[in-house]
Lab assay of single mutants.
Amino acid sequence: MASQGTKRSYEQMETDGERQNATEIRASVGKMIDGIGRFYIQMCTELKLSDYEGRLIQNSLTIERMVLSAFDERRNKYLEEHPSAGKDPKKTGGPIYKRVDRKWMRELVLYDKEEIRRIWRQANNGDDATAGLTHMMIWHSNLNDTTYQRTRALVRTGMDPRMCSLMQGSTLPRRSGAAGAAVKGVGTMVMELIRMIKRGINDRNFWRGENGRKTRSAYERMCNILKGKFQTAAQRAMMDQVRESRNPGNAEIEDLIFLARSALILRGSVAHKSCLPACVYGPAVASGYDFEKEGYSLVGIDPFKLLQNSQVYSLIRPNENPAHKSQLVWMACNSAAFEDLRVLSFIRGTKVSPRGKLSTRGVQIASNENMDAMESSTLELRSRYWAIRTRSGGNTNQQRASAGQISVQPAFSVQRNLPFDKPTIMAAFTGNTEGRTSDMRAEIIRMMEGAKPEEMSFQGRGVFELSDERAANPIVPSFDMSNEGSYFFGDNAEEYDN
């Protein structure tokens, strides 16, 4: 993207840094990872977990959730003011799984939030270390993106479920800051804005008074975040219109849905970061690795190297396929839920299948599930090659597409044709070009129609051997075009429920 120079890199967003050079960025990201790792080690000690239990991804998720809940100030305040039966607002906890007599047992633990905050700050040299908290939120978000298709949420806001490739980060909490905003897809931002506008339509006082002023500035800020994701002048001009509207209503909703559809071809720039579970960072720190000293990046080879040398386990339900569970977590670790499966298959070195073909449910185990038949197995999170994460949407291309997802959002900077089903997408653009945004709409449609099938995206960008740390010898991959490109292809993934 041309304006790259004016933006802070995501590592800076990730670490609240002012302008830093590459070495400083690597050190501050490393410091953040160190903090998460030290916190995780301490929690495993508190909970008396064995090494194996500490490497269980379900335990990692519970521990991450506990610290996120302990620092969720708004919710904590709300819980104190609106006490609900049987919930102690000062405590947080969740299921911890232990191996007892050759069987997995679930144990519900409860801790004072104050105590968890103390352990977290102690692991982070006394700081609140917001960057580390956001990092864990993005890992949870990436896992949700890989596990669930947001059909219901899309339909509720009037969008087409086939636009799911635009929904990265749709389950990120509001408090995820600049680093969170960077990884949100165009569809996620559109959905947040539509929800806001709908509230304004239904509630006369939404934009009024002292609160209304705050609401208005939040609305304009979200519009600017979305505008910054678009790469064409016409899309940005249309966002200006939406932002400046005196009284946002149905016309703005129409414009936003139009823009979301246009992003299936004229893709937005959305950041991709490899955020790993805390149970990967903990053992690495415990083994003596100093992330701050060595430096770390979320968008280069580092996460690949770390996963190459990590042992992570997962509980497996009786009829689940461990290899499929591994694929789910591998995609989440690489922030690749909406990437082209052919690119992923090449990088991973084994075939990556669409969601609907995987015999696996989510990673988390519900409290009512029976533990008797639970097994555990090693997650295979290694890769054959590594590639640089991208934040450009890439230019655009036609490809055989599917009944489910009709476009992709690249996660890796790797040369390819970008699949999208042009006739299906263009069919949504018939007729409606009147109104105050008509010239911009016409211009956007013209650009979409001009998108050429034979153009290559990320020209000359390749993948790298894991021994090639400096990215000196790019390998331009070859793809098996007979395979499906979309992950949520004609899909039956479970729906995400809060």
Score class of each variant (00 low, 15 high):
R106D: 10
T146Y: 07
R213F: 05
R117A: 05
L172Y: 02
H82N: 09
Q308E: 01
K98V: 10
A373S: 15
S486L: 14
Y111G: 02
R416W: 04
M238Q: 14
G37T: 04
M167R: 06
R236D: 01
F71V: 11
Y52Q: 00
V299W: 13
A403Q: 08
A401K: 14
D72E: 10
E484R: 00
N321D: 01
P419V: 14
E53W: 13
T215A: 14
D491H: 04
E11V: 13
M331R: 02
N211F: 10
R470H: 00
Q149D: 02
L358D: 05
L328S: 05
A373K: 07
S402N: 03
F291P: 06
S377C: 09
I365D: 04
E64N: 11
D240G: 12
P410A: 15
R221S: 04
P419N: 03
I201C: 13
L266Y: 08
Q149G: 05
R150P: 12
R470P: 00
E294V: 15
Y296C: 10
T157A: 14
K351D: 01
I445C: 15
A278Q: 01
W104C: 04
L307C: 15
D203N: 08
A234L: 03
G37I: 03
P477Y: 01
K351G: 02
R174G: 08
R175A: 05
E64M: 11
D203M: 04
Q12W: 05
R361V: 15
Y148L: 05
G185Q: 11
G268Y: 01
S438Y: 00
M456D: 01
I406K: 09
N417Q: 12
F346W: 11
P248N: 01
V242F: 07
I406E: 06
G212D: 11
G209F: 12
N144Y: 06
D128G: 05
Q327A: 02
S60N: 14
G462E: 14
A85E: 05
A131D: 02
G356S: 08
L143Y: 05
K113I: 02
V100C: 05
E192M: 11
E64T: 11
R261S: 06
Q327G: 03
G462D: 01
A337K: 02
A366F: 05
E14T: 11
N142W: 10
C44L: 13
I194S: 05
T151S: 13
W330H: 07
R8C: 07
S3F: 15
T15N: 10
T62P: 09
A2F: 01
A182C: 05
Y385I: 05
M43C: 10
L298W: 08
V312T: 13
M456Y: 10
S335P: 03
A403P: 06
A442L: 13
E375R: 02
G177F: 12
A237E: 05
M137W: 03
R342P: 08
G300A: 09
L49F: 15
Q459P: 11
R74Q: 14
G30A: 15
R19L: 00
Q415A: 15
E465F: 01
S310M: 04
G158I: 07
D468G: 00
L56Y: 06
I36G: 08
G30N: 11
A179G: 11
R400I: 04
A427V: 04
M196D: 06
R208A: 00
M222S: 14
M32Y: 09
E320C: 07
G431H: 13
I63D: 03
G393S: 15
Y385S: 05
G35T: 11
L418K: 00
P89H: 04
G132W: 05
M163C: 14
A428S: 12
L49I: 10
G268A: 03
Q459L: 05
W330C: 08
Q235G: 09
D340V: 09
G460C: 13
V29W: 06
S402P: 03
K214S: 06
T350G: 15
M447K: 06
N247S: 15
D51Y: 00
E443Y: 03
A22F: 05
E380A: 08
A401M: 00
C279I: 04
T350E: 00
Q20F: 01
A218F: 13
V476C: 13
E46I: 11
G362Q: 07
Y52K: 05
D203W: 07
A22K: 15
A179M: 10
S287M: 09
E115F: 13
E53H: 06
P303H: 01
P318H: 14
R152C: 01
E434L: 08
T62Q: 03
A2W: 04
E375A: 02
L79P: 08
I301F: 10
V299I: 10
E495I: 05
S287P: 08
P89T: 05
C164S: 13
R99N: 10
Q327L: 15
L49W: 09
D290T: 07
R152K: 14
I194F: 05
V329C: 12
T146C: 07
S297V: 09
T232M: 11
A403R: 12
R382F: 05
N397I: 09
A271I: 06
M189K: 05
T134K: 00
V285M: 15
N142M: 12
D372R: 04
A179C: 12
K184D: 00
G17S: 07
C279M: 07
N205S: 12
D439L: 01
V67K: 09
W120D: 09
V183R: 04
M440P: 02
G228S: 12
Q122H: 14
H272Y: 03
D101S: 09
V67T: 08
I265M: 15
L108Y: 09
R19D: 09
T390N: 11
S217Y: 10
V183F: 05
T188V: 03
G249T: 05
H140N: 12
N76V: 04
F412P: 02
V190M: 14
Y40T: 08
I225R: 05
G212E: 03
A428H: 14
G393A: 15
P283F: 00
D480V: 14
M137F: 12
A129H: 05
Q241D: 01
D72V: 08
A387F: 09
R355M: 06
P354D: 10
A428T: 15
A131N: 12
I41M: 08
E369S: 10
D160M: 12
E81R: 08
N492V: 04
I25G: 15
L259C: 09
E292Y: 05
R174D: 08
R121M: 11
R216K: 15
E114P: 04
N202Q: 12
L193S: 15
S376T: 11
N432D: 00
G435A: 07
G86H: 15
F304H: 07
T396I: 03
Y496I: 11
K422T: 12
D497I: 12
R355W: 12
G268C: 13
G86L: 13
I201H: 01
G187A: 14
G94R: 06
G295W: 12
E443F: 03
A182K: 01
Q235S: 07
V155T: 13
E454N: 02
A472Y: 13
A263C: 14
D51K: 00
R117G: 02
R199D: 02
P89K: 01
L133I: 15
M1N: 10
D72M: 12
N492C: 12
A131T: 04
K422S: 11
M159G: 03
C333N: 05
Q241F: 14
G169V: 10
T433I: 15
R246F: 07
R117T: 11
A278K: 08
I445R: 09
Y111N: 06
R152I: 01
S176G: 14
V299P: 05
K273I: 07
W139V: 06
E24Q: 15
Y281R: 09
A234I: 13
N319W: 02
S482C: 05
E192H: 02
T151M: 08
R267F: 03
G490W: 04
K91E: 03
T146I: 01
Y10M: 10
V100L: 15
G200A: 05
S50H: 12
L381P: 01
I475N: 01
C164K: 08
A336F: 00
N202V: 10
R199V: 13
L49N: 09
V270G: 09
Q4I: 14
M1E: 10
D480E: 13
I116F: 06
E495P: 02
V186M: 02
C223W: 12
L110K: 12
F291R: 04
S407Q: 12
G212F: 10
K325W: 12
R243W: 04
V363A: 15
R446C: 07
N211T: 13
V352E: 09
S310G: 13
A233E: 00
E210R: 09
M239K: 05
R55V: 10
Y496E: 02
D491A: 03
R446D: 15
W120V: 06
A260T: 13
E46F: 14
